[in-house]
Nucleic acid binder design. Structure first.
Lengths: 153, 153
DNA sequence: CTGAGACCTCAACCCCACTCGAGCTTCCCC
DNA sequence: GGGGAAGCTCGAGTGGGGTTGAGGTCTCAG
């Protein structure tokens, strides 16, 4: 608690969070994270930024857009540093969303058998094409689940 | 069988497939669907196009990019009209992919409890941030999972 | 035969989440 | 105090998947 929030440079934050500096600047421009500046105009981040960045990445994995994440972060208490409980509350709210995604995929998987197998594929009444939930599915658009490119091995 | 492939206008195809005419032209430019032209240069689609469009949309829901879908379609027999079996074969190949996505989401869901709850969120060793499966998660990039928010009923 | 509505092309634009590069400044270790 | 790495801003570019609009043509019911 006495620890006076050691400040990280953007490079350090990038290394520790695994997020490129360009992305961090981008996040800052979008209001996802904040920094202070040195006399020479360089960014300095508090340790807490690390957690914030981690939250952002996790939220993206759930499929939230940056705008949605900004909105979620806006519900954090202003004055004090967020507690584990705060973070936990936010991320718990993702659960239904994740489960919904899972259910959707399960339905899709099951329909692949029943629909494509049965030949109804071309009918607009087919649940596969015409997901039913589509109308309700307003939303952010792309869900980036592992943007890809991890050949890594 | 005698039915001589009634030709659909692009508007009819759009209406019956639920895909905008602009998207259909776009698909055609990408080689996903094909059309014949009238003397006046308007597109006319065979009934089979309906099934093809349906396939494309379904494939997108699974997370394939248009390029991947083109590649998949290229494995269809050239001379004859694809049979149910052909479509079925293609779509069956999506199953592992769908199941992988489901597993990923399940892991994410479970980690939300264990990781965010435990406060390790900010550590790069945390499985939530540092997905671990990232390498395995090669893929198309964006996975369009019903953009979200489906109260539906 | 006429005219409204559907269709044509092509280029430009949209969104999302970043990345890259140029040109310049600051930091900090030796 | 010198120099090289790291940081700065700003604008442009990327890729995926389309949409929009201008300007013109075709189709087909009446």
């Amino acid at each position: 608690m006495a620890r006076p929030a050691a400040h990280l440079t953007i490079g350090q934050l990038a290394e520790r969070s695994g997020v490129a500096t360009s992305a961090l600047r981008f996040y800052e421009s979008r209001g996802l994270i904040a920094s202070e500046r040195t006399a020479g105009n360089q960014r300095r981040y508090p340790q807490a930024a690390l957690r914030r960045v981690a939250f952002v990445r996790s939220a993206q994995r759930v499929g939230l857009t940056l705008d949605e994440i900004v909105a979620a972060l806006a519900t954090l208490p202003e004055g004090r540093a967020p507690t584990k409980g705060d973070w936990s509350r936010l991320s718990r709210s993702w659960r239904p969303r994740i489960e919904e995604q899972i259910e959707r995929l399960e339905r899709l998987r099951d329909k692949l058998d029943s629909c494509i197998g049965c030949g109804c594929l071309s009918l607009r009444t087919c649940a596969l094409n015409n997901p039913g939930d589509e109308a309700a599915a307003r939303g952010p658009g792309a869900v980036y689940l592992e943007p890809g490119s991890g050949p890594a091995s």
